[in-house]
Design a protein around this nucleic acid. Structure first.
Lengths: 156, 156
DNA sequence: TCATCTATTGGCAGATTCTGCCAAAATGCA
DNA sequence: TGCATTTTGGCAGAATCTGCCAATAGATGA
């Protein structure tokens, strides 16, 4: 992982469909070592995949909300069951296990406020073992970075 | 926007570097109409770009936190200044304007807890107009979807 | 300083893919 | 049904990919 790798990551986060030739030109290499570096980054698990970015509103999901959940207990069964159910709900875009208290926070999208309410009350609320739910809406997006600020040196 | 477009979006969210031939095979088209549909989705702004997904931990950012901020007032100057500063901080991955109260919520990454504290206290805290800051750490990631559940019909 | 060894690079070439163009097929409408 | 419009499939020249090999750069130790 050197400065060239970092530059490759930066460029590929900006445009993940660049041609290997274009990429190699941007990072100052010839195509074949450039391709090898990309393959190495993929094999090392640093690049985990590529994806098309899709406009959330244009796809009919104008509503974004955050849901915070506290479980009634943290037995293995409750936790596993909860996390498995969350993983299945495709309107839940991500979910974090929060430190300090047995709390989850997840980002949820919906086609309307009604749908959002339905989703929370009829799907999420019904998962066993939930002690409490808090919900908050996003009014708008101020910033949405499309990648990490990767650099060559990485202190553990 | 029909079922074929939806399938294209679904497949490209799963693997944004598929060859046009592979993509066309997966969606059941021949390459040339498939490419034209992709170009149309790009031109319509539905596909906003492509990106490489990078492993956050392997890149040296094991810490994820959420920061909630309340502004002291919502004059244009304060709001613009705040949002402009946030946009510059590359450790702030995203930031939402929350409904109900003048609140922002942002996701922040750091190389360590120390760095996180430094970032919050020395960079974010210093932005003018902040009334209060609340912070919470993520202990781990339960789910991280790589795309929206796009479908053909989209109710407004 | 120099010799040696290792890792990385650049160029080459056959195979694959891209992509603009045109005719054919499918679809929608009256 | 018949017409107009949209979408599709195939073709072909141009561009790109990618495995292989020799050459280069950088590090190591005497």
């Amino acid at each position: 992982m050197d400065a060239t790798d970092a530059k490759i990551l930066k460029v590929l986060q900006r445009d993940g469909r660049l041609t290997n030739q274009e990429l190699s030109a941007e990072v100052g290499l010839s195509p074949s070592p450039c391709l090898r570096r990309v393959r190495n980054l993929e094999a090392a698990g640093i690049i985990t995949g590529y994806t098309a970015l899709v406009d959330q509103k244009l796809c009919g999901f104008p509503v974004t909300g955050f849901v915070r959940i506290r479980l009634a207990n943290h037995s293995d069964e409750t936790v596993r069951g909860f996390e498995a159910r969350i993983a299945e709900i495709e309107h839940v875009l991500d979910c974090y296990l929060m430190a300090g208290g047995e709390d989850y926070q997840m980002k949820v999208i919906a086609r309307s406020l009604d749908d959002y309410e339905q989703l929370v009350r009829k799907t999420i609320q019904k998962i066993p073992g939930i002690a409490s739910i808090e919900t908050s809406f996003a009014y708008g997006v101020v910033k949405h970075a499309r990648g990490l600020p990767v650099s060559a040196e990485m202190r553990p």
